[in-house]
Design a binder for these strands. Sequence first.
RNA 1: UGCCCGGUAGCUCAGUGGCAGAGCAGGUGACUGUUAAUCACUUGGUCGCUGGUUCGAUCCCAGCCCGGGCAGCCA
Length: 462
Amino acid sequence: MSRTLVKDALNAAAPMDAILLQGWVRTRRDAKGFSFIELNDGSGLKGIQIIANATLPNYGTEVAKAHTGASLEVRGKLVPSQGQGQKWEVVAEAITVLGEADATYPLQKKGHTLEFLREIAHLRPRSNLFGAVFRVRSRLAYAIHQFFQAKSFVYVHAPIITASDCEGAGELFRVTTLDPSHPPMTEDGHVDFKQDFFHKKAYLTVSGQLEAEIFACALSNVYTFGPTFRAENSNTSRHAAEFWMIEPEMAFCDLQGNMDLAEEFVKYLIRDAREHCAADLEFFSKFVDKELLSRLDFVLQRPFQRCSYTEAIEIITKSGKTWEHPVVWGDNLQSEHERFLGEEHFKCPVTVYNYPRTLKPFYMRVNEDGKTVRAMDLLVPGIGEIIGGSQREERLEVLRENMAHHKLNEKDYWWYLDLRRYGTVPHAGFGLGFERMLMFVTGVGNIRDVIPFARTPGTAEF
RNA sequence: UGCCCGGUAGCUCAGUGGCAGAGCAGGUGACUGUUAAUCACUUGGUCGCUGGUUCGAUCCCAGCCCGGGCAGCCA
């Protein structure tokens, strides 16, 4: 007999004379002469109710002692439930306890704090919340490919190990096979990376953008979707040292087209989760964030607001509010300003574009005013920036000037410059933080709780 | 990295300069249908670590460790 998933049993159209279920005990309730066992196999939020009669040969020795967490194999009949609260239940004819879980099993049928569950990341997927989070994560990963594939974007695998310190985006993780206590030295007393594995310094990637640009300048529309690493000592609820990022890159595309795609993409993912993860989202709406569903629907219903950096500064300074960090044109927007724009002023996702040139990396396209670049950040309520992107500088001479300004060595980027030497085209792209998107869709407030095994400063357990 | 908050039973938390507490979980028993079942009884502690003050510290003080929140960096 083949196994039936709990979710399929719960959706059965008719009773079944013979059914095989496998899963873990969520709770057992004993009555005189029989027990109720709620069995969950992760296929959905809801478990199925098993009726274990005392007439089962191993009832007294095993079944009635199966605690929360024990793994079971149940053979029996699927019948209409006599009780309230569920349509179907299984009357067991044989129950095998595959693995007992004793009293030290840390997960209870009671609620746990997220902080505690983080410490038992190997068991937390068995909880309602994390089962739901990771089902949504899986679904959205799939939806990302569907979205781009339907638009004929080509999926590109950008390298994870890189020798280029892309865009100078903060601290990088070094990749090396040198002996840290006795590295080879050069005559002038520095570590000799010529003797390292790649014959030069190497790092974990902080972005697949530059490689995506190469492929966009050949295949037109591409996207990457992979892990990304930042060695920043960030201790916030929305930063991780290892996270997943989606980076579309489009040739023959400007900032407008970039902003349009970002908005369409975010809305597509929300709509997909609404449709395909309905039960899980309702669970989040009930236990994590009461306003989740209304907020998601609100976001779907109207266009995102767009405002230039210059307009944003005006809105902030004319708001009459007192700021911890007052801003003038040329300053970075602080968290308090971004929150004000999204949560108070516009009350919906906002794309801020055309930032001062001095605030942004060398590859962003300089505007006609010479002072701003075609950058864009998408800010969403509750999280802040989930997308950062730009139109890229396609003019060779301007790009070289920018590189000189940022004190970058052209030799290190010879191939990047070649893209502008040979058949250069306007192009644009952005990066969407997958975990931040998941936080927005699930209402879960900490990035450590939407990734299976979070890597943050000082923490790489599991 | 900076500022702030916390660490007491397996979990969630209360509490006090003088015998260490509750709810849940676990155990035993009761109950013919429960839904985080219910009821009775019950096991369970290096009060984060180190040092100091004190007759006496889980409580007061200092340092350290760990967790969380916010800020910066960004996605």
